[in-house]
Amino acid sequence: MLALTWELVRDVFQYPELLFPGMTSIGKALWAEKWEILGKTVFSLKLIATGLTAAVILAAIGTIAALNGKIFSEIVTDFMAIMHPLPGIAILPAAILWFGIGIKAILFVIIFSAVWPLVNHFYTGFRSIPANQLEVGKNLGLSGVRLALWVMLPASFPHILGGLRTGWARAWQASVAAELVFGAAGGDGGLGWFLYKKRFMMETSGVFAGMVVIILIGIAVEYLIFAGIEKRTVKKWKTILD
């Protein structure tokens, strides 16, 4: 449907191939560049996996601190209020000054973009655990780590999953954007860098090929990973509405 509209718009307005490449040339570019695209994809995904893992750990520490002390709670909520509206990419210039052009700066942007929505969801999730379930856990003699892992974590799982979803989306956007803006990755890079390079060399069909891959990865992560986890957990338990 989308492809058809695409071709129709091209025909009607007679856009030049250089600006508006046809589906076939995008397909050809995709095929011709398949190894490079694959390499860039792996690079991007590795970077995001690293950044997201770090962001989850930081968010977990922040949330635990916020839940355990009034001062921490205020610090975390204040930081969240200030930092949450700041688009991750806006921190890139500062990151480049601090870490130089390269992977470190991009990683920083990814972590920064993902950590605030993660903290926000985790914090909300832990605070909205039904009091009865928490007290049943305590009644069973659970406390500390056992209570957190066996009761609090599954009880707040709908929010945790929501946080991971947003975190992933933010991290993915940030990684592509960061590489794109300044070609920040340097010589070696991911999909954002691929787009940057293709644009630089006026290989428009390559640019669109890169975009297709970015969309496909977004869809794949949503349907293969998040929808799968959701089906096996919160949808099965009916702790979120369909």
Binding site: N132, Q133, E135, N139, P154, F157, T239
Partner: peptide, 20 residues
């Protein structure tokens, strides 16, 4: 001094079973 399984509470709320 603290909660323990020797005194087990049943609440009014219908959300005390672990839904997972």
């Amino acid at each position: 001094t603290k909660p323990g399984p020797d005194r087990f509470m049943i609440f009014q709320g219908l959300d005390q079973l672990f839904p997972w």
